[in-house]
């Protein structure tokens, strides 16, 4: 069936069989490779995207059901001041090792700082509870998120 939705601010229209997941539509049909295939059971968060502005696991969503909705990946947030600050803090703080979890973690961190510009360490932890990282032990990503909050200019 045809599915029309907004991807990173641009209208897209694709043919998606009923059993195709948003994750597969993004990666295989639309070439959005920042969205990673991890556990495929909604546990690891590597495939996190914003759906209607909220972080969700794209492996847990039928592509046909995003009809009329807005999907955002890190590609669509490149120039957003919060994402610029997060990227800088992650790079300078060494919060990335293998990098597989990073796009999903950045999406979760972006949604946190957008809604809560000055999170507590606990709030930052909760925000990325659904993003599993097997390299860093979470300490440096958490530091980077709190650092990015300080760097982001208040609006």
């Amino acid at each position: 069936m045809m599915v029309d939705f907004v991807l990173n601010g641009r209208a897209v229209s694709c043919d998606a069989p009923a059993n195709i997941l948003l994750l597969d539509l993004l990666r295989s049909e639309l070439g959005v490779l920042s969205v990673k295939r991890g556990c495929e059971q909604g546990e690891c968060g590597a495939c996190t995207v914003l759906l209607g502005g909220r972080p969700v696991n794209s492996c847990m969503i039928l592509a046909a059901r995003v009809e009329g909705r807005s999907v955002t990946t890190i590609e669509g947030l490149r120039d957003e001041p919060i994402m610029v600050a997060l990227r800088k803090a992650f790079m300078e703080g060494g919060a990335v090792q293998c990098g597989f979890c990073t796009p999903g973690m950045l999406i979760s961190a972006y949604a946190l700082l957008r809604d809560n510009p000055s999170p507590t360490p606990h709030e930052a932890k909760t925000a990325i509870e659904g993003n599993i990282c097997r390299c860093t032990g979470y300490a440096l990503p958490l530091e980077a998120i709190l650092k990015a909050a300080e760097m982001t200019p208040a609006e």
Partner: peptide, 9 residues
């Protein structure tokens, strides 16, 4: 329940 992602969906 679950994670932020699960609770949003």
């Amino acid at each position: 329940i679950g994670s932020v992602q699960t609770r949003n969906q």
